[in-house]
């Protein structure tokens, strides 16, 4: 350590030029800052861990236990729940067979989720386009009209659909009143009802991200395309669609994931017969009294959702790399 070359050397300065001290102080400040940040995050971390994320691990543990006779579990290891997800023991000859009921529900869940995604695409993309091409003042109003249902109670929106399509609902009453039919058309408790309901409740989830990407669209590019004698169809397929694709992918994922895990809409509109995965899981904790199977099914559903999410991250990540 050397004294400053010129000027006085009051007590305060003697250590000032020591590079180690400065570095130590800086390190100390940074560490204290990070400690404060962790402390501030602690309540949120604790609550989410205790009442959302942490219990998921218990679900995993329960999926490997033996079902108790009146629900709950016995603490004995058993892989049966996981086998039961796809296979079942024949009650007469004890041979393993495909669990047709489960597989049908898996298939129905996937089918209805894809169908819902497709329907929201058909309705949502033109709607998003329509909103994005309004002038600025009216655009806010249209956007607000899409957002309101998004934040209103999902159960109430499902009930609204139900009142429309019930046997004694508005549509059937009107048709009978007009003398067009004599017996009400059975729409409730069908796959159609579930797809219609899910399309209705998840539609805003498609419109909003697609709108966001159309809004960013540079319409000069579109004009340039027309300038080069592209037809409308070619224009849409070659220029607009690729540019809007990120929003369409985001919207599709946002619709597909809650559809796959839907519980309220199939329960209200599908009734007891047309189950989806969410209802099958619930059944194991209610009448089924097979908590381990319910746990295994829940983890299976979560894994399916994670696959969809990872696919999304993969696609958007690649897109980001392309655009620099």
């Amino acid at each position: 350590m050397s004294a400053p070359p010129s000027g006085p050397a009051p007590a305060a300065s003697s250590s000032g030029l020591d590079p180690g001290r400065a570095a130590r102080l800086a390190g100390e400040v940074a560490r204290r800052d990070i400690r404060t940040r962790w402390m501030l995050s602690l309540p949120a971390i604790a609550i989410v861990t205790a009442a959302a994320a942490g219990p998921l691990l218990i679900v995993l543990v329960y999926s490997f236990l033996t079902p108790g006779p009146y629900g709950n579990v016995e603490w004995r290891f058993s892989p049966d729940a996981w086998i039961n997800v796809v296979l079942q023991k024949d009650i007469f000859d004890d041979t393993w067979q495909w669990a047709d009921a489960h597989l049908r529900i898996f298939w129905r869940s996937l089918e209805l989720s894809f169908l819902t995604t497709a329907l929201t695409l058909v309705l949502g993309v033109p709607t998003a386009w329509f909103i994005a091409t309004r002038n600025e003042r009216t655009r806010v109003v249209w956007l607000f009209l899409i957002t309101i249902p998004f934040w209103t109670n999902l159960l109430i929106r499902t009930i609204a659909v139900m009142e429309l399509i019930r046997n004694e609902g508005v549509i059937n009453s009107a048709l009978i009143g007009l003398g067009l039919i004599e017996q009400p058309i059975q729409m409730m408790f069908t796959d159609f009802a579930i797809a219609l309901g899910m399309t209705y409740v998840y539609l805003p989830l498609m419109v909003l991200p697609v709108y966001a990407s159309i809004e960013k669209l540079d319409f000069r590019l579109v004009e340039a395309g027309y300038d080069l004698y592209a037809s409308r169809r070619k224009m849409f397929l070659r220029i607009i669609l690729p540019l809007v694709k990120p929003g369409i992918i985001a919207g599709s994922i946002l619709v597909f994931i809650p559809s796959l895990g839907a519980y309220v809409t199939p329960r209200v509109l599908g009734g007891g017969k047309n189950l989806m995965l969410g209802n099958l899981i619930e059944l194991q904790f209610g009448q089924g009294r097979n908590w381990p199977l319910g746990a295994a099914l829940a983890i299976t559903l979560m894994a399916m959702v994670m696959v969809a999410l990872l696919y999304y991250v993969h696609v958007t990540g690649r897109g980001r790399r392309w655009h620099g």
Partner: peptide, 17 residues
């Protein structure tokens, strides 16, 4: 910000940190 090395003085007093 604080210097990595050296010191800042205000009226003769080291205020670097």
């Amino acid at each position: 910000d604080h210097p990595t090395r050296g010191e800042i003085r205000l009226h003769g007093e080291d205020i670097s940190h």
